[in-house]
Amino acid sequence: MSTIIDIKNITKLYEMGTEKLYALKGVDVVIERNEYVAIMGPSGSGKSTLMNIIGCLDTPTSGDYVLNGKDVHEMDDDELAEIRNKEIGFVFQTFNLLPRSNALHNVELPLIYSGLSKTARIKRAEESLANVGLADRMKHKPNELSGGQRQRVAVARALVNNPSIILADEPTGNLDTKTGEEIMALFAELNKKGNTIILVTHEEDIAKHANRIIKIRDGMIESDTYQTARH
């Protein structure tokens, strides 16, 4: 196994007027390729901040972050944008699809930002949608799809650029239990195929699907345990 995420002593400081608030107080995490990790913690624990830093949406105040061999903690906005585009596939709780675009165009979008030609984009986006079982829903707009289908579109979008990690933030939070289970099954399948998955959740049931659970509290890692995933 090779290391894909190497985080050393990361802190994040928020300054609100004169008040200083450490959201992260020195976190070390190493994640290997093809791991399936759940990050857990109550709200305000700093798990969202950690997720944003792992996802390169935000930068740490101090500490080192090496993602897939690239030093990302000192990158500027545009370099981070490229890393997000190539290395990270996001799946959000609220799906975050573009409402006016159909499923195919939503999935195509990351490829537009990587500058692929139209034909290559369409081909890969169609494959990706077929992979999540939506071959017959490509021309549908988000509001014409069910919640589960929308989240599948989001997963297809996350996968389309072959990222190093899939970063899922409460992916089942807006879904009913049954549909949530379907999505979790999809993640398990992707993990089996070799994808590295990082799941942020506060639900024990969802976290059970992962091989490793990292618990965060007050900006620090409380526990880091490996388990046999229940699929």
Binding site: L57, D77, R84, N85, N96, L97, L109, Y113
Partner: peptide, 16 residues
């Protein structure tokens, strides 16, 4: 704003 956030999350640069 939300759309801009989504686009940025999946790789749109400032210039884009």
């Amino acid at each position: 704003t939300k759309e801009i956030g989504i686009r940025k999350a999946i790789g749109a640069r400032r210039r884009t």
